[in-house]
């Protein structure tokens, strides 16, 4: 089991009427990255967000762990109101794990140290405990033998596995994946998707932004299509991929397949 999800009452993530505007630096029209977006994710649900670039899907994902601030709206994750000015962002982020497209491993630390560092600093474990926990998670993602390598010495797939281990070791309630396989060579993509599918099967609440449609079809409970900062259509995978009702959804899907 990769996860440790106690069944909790109520939805894991609530996004209500979230709007975010970017003002371009050189002047010009302000752009609505997110336009009154609302989304609810139940515990243990797996939601996959698809859409063209610039649709706001990554921005939406990053508002969930407050890496992006919202201008309007409300977000509640695992009982913590992320949008409240009094929110403790560290507590919030302890419950939300994030895996990035470009891994964002700490370049000056080995793989093992990457997983250990948040354990020691944030979760206040002792060095010995942190090492034990980190080795266990590195083992589960299959890169324990690379523990003393630096990120620069690892392949993309290996780095992403370390990143997943680092996020999982925080024992989050929710896992966010921001195009986790987009920067990987094709032969490594499958391995990461398998890990993600395993987490889903174990009951982890997941929100993933991805272009991997086969993964969406097989692992997702719900697929959300975004374009121009709003949710155009959402539903079960078959409902979206096979019988989309909205014209824009169908146009996007025809370009992908």
């Amino acid at each position: 089991m990769l996860t440790n999800n106690a069944a909790s009452s109520g939805p894991a993530i609530v996004v209500e009427g979230v709007t975010k505007t970017f003002a371009p630096i050189g002047g010009g029209a302000r752009c609505r990255a997110l336009d009154h977006v609302s989304l609810t994710v139940a515990a243990s649900e797996v939601v996959v967000i698809i859409g063209p670039s610039g649709s706001g899907k990554s921005t939406l994902l990053r508002t969930i762990n407050a890496l992006e601030k919202v201008d309007e709206g409300r977000i509640v994750v695992a009982g913590i109101e992320a949008t409240s000015p009094k929110a403790n962002l560290q507590t919030l982020r302890m419950g939300v794990g994030m895996v990035f497209q470009h891994f964002n491993l700490f370049l000056h630390k080995t793989a093992l140290e990457n997983v250990m560092l948040p354990q020691i600093i944030v979760r206040k474990k002792s060095r010995a405990e942190a090492m034990e926990i980190s080795k266990a998670f590195l083992d589960k993602v299959g890169v324990l033998d690379r523990g003393d390598h630096y990120p620069g010495q690892l392949s993309g797939g290996q780095q992403q596995r370390v990143a997943i281990a680092r996020a999982l070791a925080m024992q989050p309630q929710v896992m966010l994946f921001d195009e986790a396989t987009s920067a990987l060579d094709p032969e490594m993509v499958g391995g990461i998707l398998d890990l993600m599918a395993e987490m889903a099967a174990d009951g982890m609440t997941m929100v993933a932004v991805t272009h991997e449609m086969r993964f969406a079809r097989s692992a997702a409970d719900r697929v959300v299509f975004m374009d121009g900062g709003t949710i155009i259509e959402q539903g079960a995978p078959e409902d979206i991929f096979d019988r989309a009702t909205n014209e824009r959804t169908r146009k996007f899907l025809s370009q992908i397949h």
Binding site: N65, L67, Q90, H102, F103, P118, I121, M170
Partner: peptide, 12 residues
């Protein structure tokens, strides 16, 4: 990305 990785791991 280093800032983002650190903040995503709940570091202040």
């Amino acid at each position: 990305g280093q800032w983002e990785g650190a903040m995503a791991c709940a570091m202040n």
